[in-house]
Amino acid sequence: MEFKDMFKMLADGTWDTLYMVLISTLLGYVVGLPLGVLLTITDVDGISPNKVVYKILDVIINVTRSIPFLILLILIMPFTKLVVGKSYGTTATIVPLTIAAAPLIARMVESSLKEVDKGVIEAAFSMGASGFTIIRKVLVTEARTSLLVGVTIALGTILGYSAMAGVIGGGGLGDIAIRYGYYRYETGIMIVTVAVLVILMQILQWAGMLLSKKIDKRRGK
């Protein structure tokens, strides 16, 4: 293969990967953020404890999280086909990625929000703030550093999953690595592809940490 073609293939692959990862993580937050908030407030020491709601969410999330991603990918193929019309390719892969991302994100959001000092929440209550105001202005704002670290971890994890989706023709860099490296023994291409994945992961991690340090007002200077 000519260099030009390989470059184009890798560029397209990178684009496809970013597209899958970003959209799935975004959709994952659309579902996972409210779930995480709900888990936090309904837990025994939350601001509106509700054993039943907490337990139901807890079980659903644990079950979804214990299914290995590859199995999930295959299990929900009929559902994926129903949603996007086909069961392979980048857009189709977004469905299982989102389903894998949401419970992970819900858990990370929960643990971030639970780090917020109880005393500070109580102070907000003592000033007459409503539960909704407290969620928005105290819980989420005060946990933002930790939430952002969570976003970084979520993006990294989903990036890893997206590469796995290559096994069933999921598109993106993982797909390329498997097609060339595994099926055609073109080790060179595989190594370059993996290198691009590693670099993407590094950039993600570095940007995420930089940003979260910047918005952390509790420490520094």
């Binding site: 102070a123 003592s126 105290v138 007002k217």
Partner: peptide, 26 residues
């Protein structure tokens, strides 16, 4: 109004934001 032993200021808000939060939102 209540004032606590361990202050309980919002760590990610400036002093002014701490003071203004409840009058504005509540």
């Amino acid at each position: 109004g209540m004032v606590f032993q361990s202050y309980e200021l919002f760590p990610h808000k400036t002093i002014l934001q701490n003071v203004m939060l409840a009058p504005l939102l509540v």
